[in-house]
Amino acid sequence: MSLQEKLEHVLSESSATFGVVVKHLGTGEEARVRPEQYFQMASTFKVPILATLFRDIDEGTCSLEQRFRLTEDDLVPGSGVLKEFLPGADVALRDLATLMIIVSDNLATDKILELIGAERVDAYMKELGLQNISIKQSCWELLSVGAGMGSEKKGAEGFHKVTEVFKTSGFDSDSVIFQPTPENNVTTPADMNQLLEWIGTGQLSSQAASDGILDIMKRQQLRNRIPYLLPDQTVVASKSGTVGHVVNDVGIVYLPEEKGAFTITALSFGHASTKEGERMIARLAQTAYEHFVNE
């Protein structure tokens, strides 16, 4: 069977809606499922943010050595570790960028967005020709709107209120954030995978920028999707994302025995559980890995 047929066979066992693009960076062999459909990015939107940050570093408008003092006004619920720190901690931009990716830290993400601007991330994607990557909301905005508390102000009080909503009732499944339109944080699988390809082949703003991005993404600690069913020593540069019934993972998988690498973008919604989506993404990555290794 072709790679396309193999991936479609795996997806036939899921009741969720998936958009998937897989591409071998050496041979160009590719498979695409709903490549041009909009999907909510969830925390995979942190990859375009990281790309824009390294573009700015290339241009000298910011430095990874800059330090930022965290306060209660910076608190953001959801994933990450910085929300557990006592107010007053000084954190370098390099550490914010790393934590944004490897533990999907929402506070770190919003601090970076304060520095570079969500509108500039959106504009950079358009400059690259990625017209279907749309960045409109910070983590705080995404989560507070998703909790039905879009008017809540950021800060300690708002943080505790939104956190409590998630504990008791979770996301509003009818929230506007799940609408597949450019007014939200959305992408098509094709555009996200193109961004990954440029990162993986050193064709972003510079080779140094691409290398810096990959160095962080390869440190990923959340490995229960793309890497989960792959051999233990497999090098994977990835970023996952979850919000409500949306379960995503995107990344670059490095193959053994000089067989190259492949990009994989797996975006989805409509899962009965997060674990169901995670298992499906792991199987998609395993299927692609075995296909390329055995060619």
Score class of each variant (00 low, 15 high):
K239R: 10
K46N: 04
F159D: 09
V103Q: 13
S240T: 15
T265L: 01
T234D: 03
G241I: 05
E278G: 13
F171Q: 03
P256I: 00
T109L: 11
K83Y: 09
T187E: 02
D90S: 15
K275G: 05
G158T: 12
S268I: 00
F262A: 06
A118R: 11
L113T: 06
M125R: 07
K153E: 13
A208M: 08
E276I: 03
E164R: 14
P35N: 04
L130I: 12
P182N: 07
K83W: 15
G129V: 09
T17L: 06
D172G: 06
T265M: 00
M192E: 08
E157F: 06
G155N: 11
N184F: 04
K23D: 08
Q179C: 06
P227A: 13
Q207A: 12
T242M: 02
R32G: 00
P48D: 04
T27G: 12
D191R: 04
S238E: 14
F39G: 02
Y124S: 12
G170H: 09
S240P: 05
P227W: 07
G19S: 07
G202W: 04
N185P: 05
F39W: 01
G170C: 07
T44S: 08
E13Q: 15
V250R: 00
R55H: 08
E29F: 07
L50R: 06
F262P: 02
A118W: 04
G200I: 04
R223H: 06
E276Q: 13
G277V: 05
